[in-house]
Write a protein that binds this DNA or RNA. Structure first.
Lengths: 314, 314
DNA sequence: GCACATCGTGCTCAGATGAGCAGCATCCTC
DNA sequence: GAGGATGCTGCTCATCTGAGCACGATGTGC
């Protein structure tokens, strides 16, 4: 397109999009045929001179979702728009809302849903409407008794999701990470615990998030890991955790010994699931999100625009 | 619009604007009739959920131009888009380009064009194409011999504009502001100077900018005023200057004594002109721009989006 | 309980738009 | 300079879209 046409296409776009003129009227104003105007507008669009944004908290970016599906092999993707987002919290809320919406629209409705816990999951549980489904049983897929602050958010998450769906919640009565391997084996040998884990393995769908490998981690907050532990994991290449298991950028377990002391579904079990919905948003989680998608830990990703673009650029 | 419709309108907008589906296809996807989809899209637009921006250095904001004409009584207005502008310099360049474009498109072509000088005018002269008109004679409308740095930009501006239009430039061989009133009278009495001012008075059109009342002023840079002088003018209510004459927010002369020592067209002569094009852009000039428009110093304003909105909000 | 106003719905119809096509100018190759 | 390739132009035609209208559902006041 030469300079003249470029300018004309801008003039035409102004009249078309800002003044709501018809292509015919624009043709008269610019002394062009209406076909030429149509072509100029098409060129302006195609060259990216026209940006159309949907400004709404619930707005999604379908073209990016498509690219995630096509280029990263996901079964499905939900990308919330970042347009007009003021804070990280708002982005988190939008993403949680989108995850809740996605869950609600799932067909067939899963009879058993395996969930992890954490800030993201808790927020999703709050965004779900009462009666979002009927008769979904929820089972925790990783250990989740909080040691320190905010006791019970893990339980509250699972119970909340279940109650709002008119189902029941099955909690995994175990710490997330145990200090000694023997204790972990003993706990897993417990009839109740083993039963819950079996149930978790048989879930129709999984919903989980991922944590960044930094000091803001819920594992630090909950007291399972010290800040020093996390630093060490980062040194070994950790980019974050999924269901309490720390992975590197390829999705491999960073510290097998630590992993062996972690209670819940293994990553391979998660990978084998036919439906695994990961909800990961925010700048801090770009690296984990990449690792999760790259290593096939989820089949569906719910995320924000910036994170999605990060996955596609890499 | 209730919540359900709001969400539907967003879903419809996503499919319509991002996926280029027809309203009929969207209707099938969302289980709605195509009329309902059309109404949802109209609502989404009307509620401001849809933002369409034209991303181009030459893009203008026609609706704002219309409001400037209608609400501020201007004969014409040119408002350049701020979309995607990174720096104040870029905004300045866009505005200068728009002014050059406007000048080029003026019909009838002015035979004599009165111009002021300064950074903005110089930039406009650079953005004009060779042959932008044929046979336009340019005359300086205010004194413009630079005392200190950048000697000759005042002359270069007028000469540049004239040369590119295949015309000649008439310079006003006088300082902008004289130290003593007697000297000013003496200069004005000079046959050549008087002739130039007479020619300036008879110009068909005027092109000028305005300066902010701060230390970045060209009058400080050129040595006509000290920083202290400007501070004093600000104390007296000055918001900026037009052709070297400092005005308050109502467009009145702030310091009549200083004004009497300033060489060139008076503001009243400028106001009486049938075609006066003011080119004013940038955050620092919001106040002057307002004063210029409010007091009818120009009939046409070329400015940027933010400045225009400032004029309309006030 | 009834008449009325209001609103949303699905329709007709005309105007606006995009796809595809033939004609023409321009440019390149030999 | 002839022939052919390329690309732009203005057209026809089918489709898409918005305005306006009639109908029925819902809600309201007497």
């Amino acid at each position: 397109m030469d300079e003249i046409d470029e300018l004309l296409s801008i003039r035409a776009a102004e009249l078309y999009y800002e003044e709501n003129k018809t292509q015919d009227e624009i043709g008269q104003a610019l002394r062009l045929t209406r076909w030429k105007v149509g072509r100029l507008l098409a060129q302006a669009k195609q060259q990216g001179f026209i940006r159309i944004e949907i400004l709404h908290p619930r707005a999604r970016r379908l073209p990016i979702e498509r690219r995630l599906r096509d280029e990263r092999g996901l079964t499905d993707a939900v990308v919330v728009s970042s347009a007009g987002v003021a804070s990280a919290e708002e982005l988190q809320a939008r993403t949680a809302q989108a995850a809740a919406d996605y869950l609600t629209s799932l067909r067939p409705v899963p009879r058993t849903l395996g969930v992890s816990w954490g800030r993201t999951l808790f927020e999703i549980s709050q965004h779900l409407r009462n009666g979002w489904a009927s008769g979904v049983n929820v089972v925790q897929i990783n250990g989740g008794v909080s040691l320190n602050r905010r006791p019970g958010t893990a339980a509250a998450t699972a119970v909340g999701i279940a109650q709002k769906a008119g189902g029941s919640a099955t909690l995994l009565p175990s710490p997330a990470i145990l200090e000694r391997l023997e204790t972990k084996h003993a706990i897993e040998a417990d009839r109740v615990v083993a039963g819950v884990i079996d149930l978790a393995r048989s879930a129709d769908a999984y919903l989980f998030s991922a944590g960044a490998a930094d000091h803001t981690s819920v594992h630090v907050e909950s007291g399972y890991l010290s800040e020093g532990d996390v630093d060490l994991l980062v040194q070994k290449g950790a980019v974050g955790d999924v269901v309490g298991r720390y992975i590197d950028s390829d999705g491999n377990i960073v510290d097998p010994a630590l992993d062996a002391r972690t209670v819940g579904l293994t990553l391979d079990e998660l990978r084998a699931a036919s439906l695994g919905v990961a909800v990961i948003a925010g700048r801090a989680k770009h690296a984990v999100a990449d690792a999760v998608v790259r290593s096939g830990l989820c089949s569906v990703l719910v995320t924000d625009e910036a994170t999605a673009l990060h996955l596609l650029d890499g």
